[in-house]
Design a protein around this nucleic acid. Structure first.
Lengths: 228, 228
DNA sequence: GATTTTGTATTGTTGAACAATCTATAATAG
DNA sequence: CTATTATAGATTGTTCAACAATACAAAATC
């Protein structure tokens, strides 16, 4: 269990602030998978009332990060293999649609290019966590190619769940590092308007990434069994 | 404002029940666009406490059906033209992805076929509301072709918003009626494994539907101006 | 008419209380 | 000893009252 947290900016209601903070902690692996989120305990730690925390839990449950079970309370979601398969299915549909909708000179392309450059720099510093964060930002930017707030929102939810999966794994460096060059090649193809090429590269990436995440989950499961 | 509502099944917490009930009322046009949802009033009408209602509002705001503005309260969302454009963009990406993922003999195909038959029967009875409901169910079933709970969830959210749009319109018969034959042709193409044909038909449908909805919104806006 | 001030209503949040439900522990039966 | 049942305690879900903060409406002033 983490120490008392710091709350984000105060232009939003307390319930939203608390939900955002818990969300960040969930994504950073600050809670264990399936961990019970005790209302009394967490309300006390955040210094908010239980009613306010319940509102926050409703928000988090809508995002799939918390499983709110009637009369039993709220638990940290623990996406497993089935979830990973579905997450990549969603990514395939949405990201493919975004790439196919990509128009030349779209601002998101410049953003993607910039993120690749930053990832290359982080790779040179062996800053794996940053590489991972930039990789995800890269894919978020890709979805923005189709200029759909709702698709971006949907994608963000799925991405948050995927980060929850990463939070369950010990070592995620190998999950992001090999894809920096691939991302660069992908953005080059998009800039050149070679959509079919970009789609093919994206599908290659998604397949490799999915397999790597599933393998890591499997290894993690094996280790958990050994410990038990 | 509607009369005191009946609550749905009791296997869920009260907050969820209230949220579901309000959601149904929103979709059925039981509230006006941008109408203020007074906590005190609605809590009293539902016979629940204000805290419980706030939880429900958090759920509804996550679904995009209610806009929760800090210190001002909750308002009925009123999707306009920009939202409609985005909704159809989402539909294009998701439904296209679903159709391209369609495998022969998928259970959703049988469901789509059944829904078309029901829509034809309802059409014969000039039951426009039922035709509309079945049309939406048809498209929901289409998304199930790709077996992704998360895509289905995302699509449901978007569909709920679209129904909110319909709830703003006076006469929606012409928004659904012309597409029964198109849906039938589409499911036939899918059953025959003619995916490219199905994709083309889907794009035709989406384009026509989007134009029809936008036109209806425009006409509605014109009438509102006349009344004001 | 436009701006400022005042009063009222509502929201956001808190905390106490209690019924209902679940979980953990103890007691009992086989 | 194991399995089942009963009991106690903890927690959740909900209600209610209260109050500070904010927004909105009405009144007063320029």
């Amino acid at each position: 269990m983490p120490v008392t947290p710091v709350l984000p900016a105060e232009d939003q209601s307390l319930a939203i602030q608390v939900a955002d903070r818990i969300r960040d902690m969930l994504i950073d692996g600050g809670f264990s998978p399936r961990e019970k989120l005790s209302e009394q305990q967490i309300a006390s730690q955040f210094g908010v009332s239980r009613n306010t925390l319940r509102e926050a839990f409703r928000l988090l449950s809508s995002q799939g990060l918390v499983e709110h079970i009637p009369n039993r309370g709220a638990f940290v979601a623990a996406p497993g293999e089935a979830a990973v398969l579905d997450i990549y299915r969603v990514r395939q549909v949405i990201q493919r649609g975004a790439v196919m909708a990509a128009g030349p000179g779209h601002p998101a392309l410049a953003r993607m290019r910039e993120l690749v450059a930053q990832a290359e720099a982080a790779l040179g510093l062996s800053d794996w966590q940053k590489v991972g964060t930039l990789n995800m930002e890269f894919h978020r930017a890709m979805v923005e190619l189709c200029d759909s707030p709702r698709l971006s929102t949907c994608f963000d939810l799925v991405l948050a769940e995927l980060r929850l999966v990463f939070g369950q794994l010990d070592d995620t460096a190998h999950l992001h590092e090999p894809y920096v060059a691939l991302n660069k090649s992908l953005v080059i193809a998009l800039e050149a308007g070679r959509i079919a090429d970009a789609v093919a590269q994206l599908e290659t990436y998604l397949l490799k990434s999915e397999r790597a995440v599933l393998a890591a989950l499997q290894r993690q499961k094996g280790q958990v069994r050994k410990l038990a």
